[in-house]
Computed example of a mutant assay.
Amino acid sequence: MATTELQADNFEATISEPIVLVDFWAAWCGPCRGFAPVFEEASEKHPDIVFAKVDTEANRELSAALGIMSIPTLMAFRDGILLHSQAGALPPQALEQLIEGLRAVDMDDVRREMEAQNQAAEASR
């Protein structure tokens, strides 16, 4: 499966998919170029996952809104919820471990915890 190019106009719709990995990169970035084939190979091995890329040079506002401070940065979403964000290029084994971990997350537990946090925040106001 090829990677999907993300921009501000398709970001929200794309991350609402069941599992989405987003690589924030730039053409001038050596580590980004090194990570690109690892990311592409993983996209071929996991066709049920959306693998997406954001060119930080072409999408400065989106990158800033998401707090991207260094590249490459990899973000992982499940059902539109950010579960992982990490700067730095991952080796293939670490990317596979991340994918396994994402698949194993109980999203009902995540939603319950988020709801409890929201209720606690509202109660403290």
Rank of each mutant, 00 (worst) to 15 (best):
T14D: 05
I15E: 02
I15L: 06
E17D: 11
E17R: 04
I19Q: 07
I19M: 02
I19W: 03
V20R: 07
V20W: 11
V20P: 10
V22I: 13
V22H: 06
D23G: 06
F24N: 01
F24E: 07
W25T: 02
A26Q: 12
A26G: 06
A26W: 11
A27P: 13
A27M: 14
A27K: 15
W28E: 04
C29E: 11
G30Y: 13
P31V: 02
P31R: 04
C32E: 09
R33D: 12
R33Y: 09
G34F: 09
G34H: 12
F35I: 05
A36I: 12
A36G: 13
P37Q: 10
P37I: 09
V38A: 02
V38R: 05
F39Y: 14
E40H: 10
E41M: 14
A42H: 00
A42M: 14
A42C: 11
A42E: 13
S43F: 12
S43C: 15
E44I: 15
K45V: 10
K45G: 02
H46S: 03
H46M: 06
H46P: 10
H46G: 09
H46N: 15
H46E: 08
H46Q: 12
P47N: 14
P47L: 13
I49M: 12
I49C: 05
I49N: 11
V50P: 08
V50M: 01
V50I: 15
V50H: 03
A52G: 02
A52R: 02
K53G: 04
V54C: 02
V54G: 01
D55W: 07
D55S: 05
E57W: 14
E57V: 14
A58S: 15
N59P: 07
N59D: 09
N59I: 09
R60C: 07
E61L: 04
S63V: 05
S63C: 01
A65Q: 08
L66K: 05
L66G: 07
L66Y: 03
L66C: 06
G67W: 06
G67T: 00
G67H: 01
I68S: 03
I68K: 03
I68M: 00
M69S: 11
P72M: 01
L74F: 04
L74I: 13
L74M: 07
M75V: 05
A76W: 05
A76N: 00
A76K: 06
F77I: 01
R78T: 03
R78S: 11
D79Q: 09
G80R: 04
I81T: 03
I81G: 01
L82I: 05
L83V: 10
L83E: 01
L83K: 06
H84V: 05
Q86C: 00
Q86T: 09
Q86W: 01
Q86G: 06
G88I: 07
P91K: 13
P91V: 12
P91G: 12
P91Y: 13
P91R: 08
P92N: 00
P92F: 04
P92S: 13
Q93E: 15
Q93R: 15
Q93M: 14
A94N: 08
L95T: 04
L95V: 02
E96Q: 15
Q97Y: 10
Q97P: 09
L98M: 08
L98R: 01
E100D: 12
E100V: 06
G101W: 07
L102K: 08
L102H: 00
L102V: 04
R103T: 09
R103Q: 12
A104L: 03
V105W: 00
V105N: 03
V105Q: 01
V105S: 01
D106R: 03
D106N: 14
D106C: 00
D106Y: 09
